[in-house]
Amino acid sequence: MKKILIVLTNVTRYAHTTDATGLWLGEATEFVETVQAAGYQVDYVSPQGGFVPLDPRSMRYTDEANLTLYESTDFQQRALTHSLRPQDVQASDYAAIYYTGGHGVMWDFPENTDLQTLSLAILQQGGFVTSVCHGIAGLLNIQDRPGHYLIANRRITGFTTAEEILAGKKKVVPFLNQTVATNHGAHFVHKRAYKSFAIQDGQLITGQNPFSAKAVAQRLLTNLK
């Protein structure tokens, strides 16, 4: 059984501020809990490898299962301390790649060509590219051929402009996921703010917000059976 690759951010703060950000914990733990319960192993990668910070606000939205995984030696070591570098990962080992969110990804996911190359390789071998919330930023600039965005003419979702306004971060993020996705030809679909929602278009599976991680995992598992 092939593994699933979890992509995490290395960014510790909103650019040019002292406001801390990083991985939104539940977007990793809820997905990982779900796929591990189905028998899948996971690896963790980040743009730079190594340390992965947590968005402190995400710790307010935890339950016993989230905390148990967070406190595990495996997660502390392989996800938060010694995440892999993209160039050290072999796409052939994975059935899917999953881009987590947290505002930090807005700075280190969009232009990372190594992650883009991994994603395309996983797609080309029949695997799936998935994301949740701000993690859609990792998909926005992938080109499956010169001048053509992977998300063009695809139905996708991610953290909406309305949700960014409600989060109070519209003025500090470098771009708006919904706007860029639309500009790159995607059919951006969304439901009520902060409600679980995931959508699939072919080998792409995307979730709207932090409450959608399990829904993404469940859609992926349905395809991997």
Rank of each mutant, 00 (worst) to 15 (best):
I4H: 03
L5V: 05
I6V: 14
I6C: 07
I6P: 01
L8M: 11
V11L: 04
V11C: 06
R13A: 12
A15M: 07
A15S: 12
T17S: 14
T17W: 04
G22A: 08
A28T: 00
F31G: 09
F31N: 07
V32G: 01
E33C: 06
E33Y: 07
T34F: 05
V35E: 02
A37R: 12
V42K: 05
V45Y: 02
S46Q: 08
S46P: 06
Q48L: 15
Q48D: 14
G50E: 07
G50A: 09
D55E: 14
M59H: 11
T62C: 14
D63P: 04
E64Q: 15
A65D: 11
L67I: 13
Y70S: 09
Y70V: 03
E71V: 01
S72A: 07
T73M: 09
D74F: 13
D74P: 00
Q77C: 12
A79S: 11
A79H: 11
L80H: 09
H82G: 02
S83D: 09
S83P: 04
S83Q: 09
R85Y: 00
P86D: 05
P86A: 08
D88C: 07
D93S: 10
D93I: 01
Y94P: 03
A95E: 07
T100F: 03
T100N: 08
G104A: 07
V105D: 02
M106Q: 08
M106W: 03
M106T: 09
F109D: 08
E111W: 06
N112W: 01
N112R: 02
N112Y: 01
Q116N: 09
S119A: 11
L123D: 00
L123G: 00
G126I: 02
G127R: 06
F128M: 11
F128H: 13
V129C: 09
S131F: 02
S131A: 12
C133D: 12
G135F: 05
I136V: 14
G138W: 06
L140Q: 10
N141F: 14
Q143V: 01
Q143K: 14
G147H: 04
L150P: 02
I151V: 12
I151M: 07
A152L: 00
R155P: 00
I156S: 07
I156D: 08
G158V: 05
F159M: 13
T160V: 10
T161P: 04
T161S: 14
A162F: 02
A162V: 13
E163H: 07
E163Q: 13
G168N: 03
K171H: 15
K171Q: 14
P174R: 12
P174D: 10
P174Q: 11
N177C: 14
Q178I: 03
T179M: 06
T182F: 05
T182D: 03
H184R: 15
G185Y: 12
H187W: 05
H190E: 10
K191H: 13
K191Q: 15
R192V: 11
A193G: 06
A193E: 14
Y194G: 01
Y194W: 04
Y194D: 14
F197S: 03
F197A: 05
I199Q: 06
Q203T: 10
Q203S: 14
G207V: 00
G207W: 00
F211G: 08
A213Y: 02
K214Y: 02
A215D: 15
Q218K: 15
R219F: 01
R219A: 12
L220S: 03
L221E: 10
